[in-house]
């Protein structure tokens, strides 16, 4: 087939036609690619538009953001879900970021080439692919019943922290890997030891990359429902957890950690699972709020990365 084509070109007989045919396949391939892209973006747009159109009556009603869930769909609101999400994310960030950054530093800067490092490496990539519902079973069997933590904000925060651990570890490793050797050698040349080099020079330089990974991870955690459902968060929560700060000493209060809770994806799931269409309006409105939050966070991460790249290039 190829040999044939070459002969024809060499003889110059059907050269034009061959070029035209190649050009046609090129245009076809490019259009298929663009078509897939357009379908994907149209889908993203139609998800958002469908949610906004369906949820509009609730979205423009301020009560929706300040009311508790209710049996009457026109009075139901998401205040307890929003507060729950904020508090769970607080636990998740506080637990996952130090752990993941430390693990990432270890794997990039310290890990010797041996079986243990290999195991940790394979393990992190496998964890990234473990379905989120399995983390939910881990939380149910170990945190809720094994450690007796119950169906609380603390349990939910911990399980989501474990879930996004691989995301932040991978981001940390990539950020550290992209830092030039010169920086480390300059630090060593000034007499810094390994830990000083890592903590004073490498880590600050890797900060934007780590921040990006953290934001992407937290955006994922905000939208995750499965691991939180298994620990039993699907309840009717008509109260707020005790506030983390108070006006009397010692000013901080950790009672909220052991409070029952609900989060936004759970609230959405609860409403969409009901047969009445009125509740689907609430579900759509919750979906808009959820999507705006995750899109904003992912957008911020993309923006930071873009700025970083521009900075590195100049």
């Amino acid at each position: 087939m190829e040999a044939d084509a070459t002969r024809v070109v060499a003889s110059g007989v059907r050269f034009q036609r061959l070029v035209a045919a190649n050009r046609r396949t090129d245009i076809m391939m490019a259009s298929i690619g663009i078509l897939v892209l357009m379908v994907a973006s149209a889908l993203l747009a139609s998800v958002l538009v469908d949610l906004i159109l369906t949820g509009w009556p609730r979205l423009i009603n301020p009560d929706f953001y300040t009311n508790f869930p209710s049996r009457k769909p026109e009075q139901a609101g998401i205040i307890s879900a929003m507060v729950g999400t904020a508090l769970v994310m607080l636990v998740t960030a506080v637990v996952s970021v130090p752990l993941a950054v430390a693990a990432g530093i270890y794997l990039e800067e310290y890990a010797p080439k041996n079986w243990l490092s290999d195991i940790i490496d394979i393990n992190v990539s496998n964890l990234a692919g473990v379905p989120s519902i399995i983390y939910g079973l881990l939380a149910l069997g170990l945190f809720v019943y094994g450690f007796g933590l119950g169906e609380t904000i603390l349990t939910a925060g911990l399980v989501l922290a474990l879930l996004i651990l691989p995301v932040i570890i991978v981001a940390t490793r990539e950020a550290i890997r992209s830092i030039p050797r010169d920086l480390r050698e300059a630090a060593y040349g000034l007499g810094a030891d390994k830990w000083q080099t890592v903590s004073h020079y490498v880590l600050p330089a890797a900060r934007p990359g780590i921040l990006t990974g953290t934001i992407v991870g937290l955006a994922r955690a905000i939208g995750e429902a499965a691991p939180v459902i298994t620990i039993g968060a699907l309840t009717f929560i008509a109260f707020l957890p005790p506030p983390p700060v108070q006006s009397t000493p010692p000013f901080v209060n950790f009672d909220w950690l052991t409070s029952p809770f609900t989060v936004m994806p759970i609230q959405l799931f609860n409403w969409v699972s009901r047969p009445q269409a009125e509740f689907h309006i609430n579900a759509a409105a919750t979906g808009v709020v959820l999507m705006v939050m995750t899109l904003a966070m992912n957008g911020l991460a993309i923006y930071i990365r873009y700025q970083l790249r521009k900075h590195q290039r100049s």
Partner: peptide
């Protein structure tokens, strides 16, 4: 990346 970030409940 934005498409990947859409919550699965949505």
């Amino acid at each position: 990346e934005l498409l990947e970030g859409v919550p699965t409940v949505v």
